[in-house]
């Protein structure tokens, strides 16, 4: 079992404050929380704000559950890049005697994993992942490609922490663009500025940064360097708590990674490129609570109006 990632004193204090005020609800497991009414009201409003912002592009709406076929995760080499963050679903298959033994061990909180077998499901680590095979299954892309509003699904990353901004399960509000390389790159550039405007308008002090993913191991360090050199990942960051600013939105240009894995082809016959934009809804909500105060009734009128709360 991985250790809990240490949190800074101000991160721990922020978590305590959110729990005390009922904005988050403790589950006993670091990084897994219930959400109180005010927290959800803000989180849903931010999601709705993104829906309105992307509406002029007439995206196709697709919603997926927080689990996805294991085969899809295997196809995109996720276990090579992020084995430390992945989580697969196991379930019981056995006899009645084994079920009894499993129950007895479980009631003593002992190890009952030997009765569990791997299923065909994994927890979804990024809200855009189910989109690519769904688009690929339709055959070649229509001219101009597609823009998908992938909703705000729960995603899972196995990184327990007492930093409230680093949850194991959180909502990623994702938009996806699939098409010709130049079109996809242009879309990402355009959204970079729009996302900064969108979040600044809520009173957050944000800035844009070139970033890299937390790839695993030595080979991961090389992937991260390569990702930075090619500027494939941008983030919008803001100060929440802790020594470093926190990313609240990220823009990822995958080049042909997902298109090649799932065989997404352009109408003209070439290989498509993909990019996604993800807003971390819980992080934005926490940043807003940190900036404007824990009582949302006292937030500045223009922020409340913009969020319709």
């Amino acid at each position: 079992m991985p250790g809990v990632r240490p949190a800074s004193p101000d991160q721990t204090a922020l978590l305590c404050a959110l729990l005390e005020r009922g904005l988050l609800i403790d589950s006993g497991v670091p990084g897994v929380y219930g959400r109180g009414a005010d927290f959800e009201a803000v989180r849903e409003s931010v999601a709705e704000l993104v829906t309105r912002a992307v509406a002029p592009e007439r995206p196709e709406r697709m919603c997926f559950p927080p689990v996805m076929p294991r085969r899809h995760l295997e196809t995109i080499d996720y276990l090579k890049s992020f084995p430390h963050l992945a989580a697969s679903i196991f379930a019981f298959t056995g006899s009645e005697a084994q079920a009894t033994e499993q129950h007895e061990r479980a009631s003593r909180h002992e190890d009952w994993s030997e009765f569990q077998g791997m299923t065909d499901l994994v927890l979804t680590p990024a809200a855009c992942y189910p989109v690519y095979p769904a688009i690929a299954a339709r055959g070649e892309l229509p001219p101009g490609g597609v823009t998908v509003d992938a909703g705000g699904a729960y995603v899972f990353r196995r990184e327990p922490s007492s930093d409230p901004a680093r949850m194991q399960m959180f909502h990623q509000r994702e938009l996806v663009r699939i098409g010709e390389p130049g079109v996809v790159e242009g879309w990402r550039e355009e959204w970079r500025d729009r996302a900064v405007e969108l979040l600044s308008a809520l009173g957050l002090e944000v800035r844009f940064d070139v970033a890299s993913d937390p790839f695993f191991g030595r080979s991961g360090r090389m992937l991260a360097v390569s990702q930075r050199e090619q500027q494939l990942k941008f983030e919008v960051v803001t100060q929440i708590a802790g020594p470093e600013p926190t990313a609240v939105a990220s823009f990822n240009y995958h080049q042909n990674h997902f298109a090649a894995a799932h065989r997404i082809e352009l109408a003209s016959g070439g290989e498509a490129h993909t990019a996604c934009l993800g807003f971390g809804l819980e992080r934005i909500t926490i940043a807003l609570l940190r900036t404007h105060g824990f009582d949302i009734d006292t937030w500045p009128a223009e922020v409340r109006e913009r969020l319709s709360i």
């Binding site: 890049s81 030595r218 992937l223 390569s226 990674h257």
Partner: peptide
Amino acid sequence: TSHASIDVMLALEDHFDVEFPD
């Protein structure tokens, strides 16, 4: 691709018995 370059790097390390520093 970047992913393929990692496989090349690891195979070079194996074959030439070296380790590329960070």
